[in-house]
Amino acid sequence: MKTYHECIVTSNQLVAPGITFMELYTLESIAPKPGQFAMIRVAKTRDPFLARPLSIMGYSSHTLKFLFRVTGRGTGLMSEITNGYSLEVLMPLGNPFPEPQGRKILALAGGVGLPPLYYYKEEHPDETTLLLGVKSASALPALPARPWIPVTEDGSAGLKGRVTDVARQMLQSDEFDAIYACGPLPMLAEVKRLGAEAGLPTLVSLEARMACGVGVCHGCAHPLTSGEYAKVCTHGPVFEAGEVVL
C-alpha cells in the first residue's frame, strides 16, 4: 500500500530570491517518473493543516529533489526546515510525462515550473532540449547542475525574450517531435497555441490547490475544453494541452 513515509531533509537552501531547493533522503526505494508529484506534510502537528503538493525534480539513490517558491505560510515554513529534520511524504502521485521513445522533446519551463522538466532532461538528456524562462538572470536557480538553456525577458543571461518566443523560433527547424511545458497559466496558454501552430503533440503540467492528492477530495479540479472538470492529481498533473482550458 502506498502511504506517507518519513524522509530526512538533507539539504534546504535558497537558490534564487524566494526559491528554495530541497533534498530529502527516503528510506523506501521508490521509482518516480518526471511529471509525478509528492504530497509533503510540512508539520506533524497538522499546522499547516494540509500537505503541500510539490513536483518531483529528481530521484537517485534514495535522494529526492524539489524546488519551490515561497508563496505562503506552508512553503515559508518548509523553506526554513533544517537538515536532519524529517518530513512525511506520500509519493509518487499522478501521471508522468511520456517517455521520448525516440522522439525529440522541446521542454519549456517557466520559473518554478522547472522541476518536472529538469527531471525529464536528467532522465532523457539526449532527447530533450530544455529552455528555462525567467524575468532576469537573478531568478535563475543556482543549482549544482544547470542542464537548461536560459532565457531571460531582459536579456541579462542567455537568450533574450519570453521562453515561448524563443521556442517559436526553434520550432521552425522541424527538429522537434513534441512539446512539454510547465509554468504559469498564461505561459501554458501560449504553449498551447505554439503546439497547435506547429502541429506537435503538446503536453502541459498543471498545478492546483490540493487537499488529498489522491483523487477523493475533488478540490484540484481544472476545467476541460469539454466543459467538464478533471482532477489535476489523478487525471494529471500532465495533460494534453488541447484537452484543458488555459
Binding site: R46, D47, F49, A208, R209, C217, H218, A221, H222, E228
Partner: peptide
C-alpha cells in the same frame, strides 16, 4: 460538473 476553483480553502485545523 461542480464549481470552479478555488474549491478548497485551508483554515486553522480545517478546510
Amino acid at each position: 460538473t461542480g464549481n470552479p476553483a478555488p474549491r478548497i480553502w485551508e483554515t486553522s485545523s480545517g478546510l
